[in-house]
Simulated assay, not measured.
Amino acid sequence: MSTDKDDLTIEDDFVTAEEEVEPQVEPAKTNLSKRRTIDNLLEERRLQRQLADFDYDL
C-alpha cells in the first residue's frame, strides 16, 4: 500500500456521453396513451378485487 500523496488533476472540460446526445422527448400523445393504458389496468385490478370481495349470498 502506498503512503505517497499524489496530487490529482481534474479536467473540467470533458464532455460525457449524456451531455452530447439531446434527450429524446416523447410526444404528448404517446405519454397520454401510456397513462390511459396504466389507468385501465389499475381500474381492471380494482374491479376484480371488488368482485372477489363481493358477497354473493344476499
Rank of each mutant, 00 (worst) to 15 (best):
F14W: 09
T16E: 07
D57M: 10
N40F: 14
D13W: 03
A52N: 11
Y56S: 09
D4W: 07
L32S: 07
Q50T: 04
E11V: 05
L41D: 03
A17F: 12
I10K: 06
T9R: 14
E22I: 09
R49M: 03
E11R: 05
D7E: 13
L47F: 06
E19Q: 15
D39E: 14
N40R: 14
T30N: 08
L58R: 12
D55R: 10
A52K: 10
A28R: 12
D53A: 14
L58D: 15
K29Y: 05
L58S: 14
R35T: 04
V15I: 08
E11L: 07
P23A: 01
R46P: 00
D55W: 05
D57Y: 02
E44D: 12
V15K: 11
T9F: 15
D53N: 12
T37G: 15
D12E: 15
R49E: 07
K29Q: 13
R35E: 12
P23F: 00
P27A: 01
T16P: 02
N40P: 00
A52F: 10
I10A: 02
D4I: 10
E11Q: 10
I10W: 12
V25H: 11
P27N: 03
D7Q: 12
D13V: 10
T3L: 05
V21N: 11
R35Y: 07
R36Q: 12
E43S: 13
K29T: 13
D4G: 03
S33T: 14
L8Y: 11
D12F: 14
D6V: 08
K5F: 10
F54Q: 11
L58T: 12
R49L: 07
R36A: 01
Q50N: 01
P23W: 01
M1S: 07
E19C: 03
I10R: 11
E11H: 07
D55F: 03
Q48E: 06
D13Q: 07
R36T: 04
E20P: 03
D53M: 11
F54V: 06
T3H: 05
A28N: 13
E20A: 07
R46Y: 09
E44N: 11
F54E: 12
E20I: 15
Q48C: 02
L51F: 11
L32I: 13
L41F: 12
V25F: 04
D12I: 12
K5C: 00
D57T: 06
V21D: 08
V21K: 06
T3E: 10
A17Y: 09
F14T: 08
D39G: 04
R46V: 01
E18L: 15
P27Q: 02
Q24M: 11
D7N: 13
R46S: 10
Y56N: 07
V25Q: 14
E19T: 14
D39F: 13
T16D: 01
R46L: 02
Q48F: 01
K34W: 05
L47G: 00
T9S: 12
V15Y: 06
F14M: 08
Q24Y: 09
R35D: 11
T30A: 13
L8N: 09
T9N: 13
I38A: 10
E22Q: 15
K34C: 05
A17H: 06
T9Y: 15
P23H: 01
V15P: 00
D6P: 00
R45W: 08
S2W: 05
P23Y: 01
Y56W: 11
S2I: 08
E22P: 15
Q24I: 05
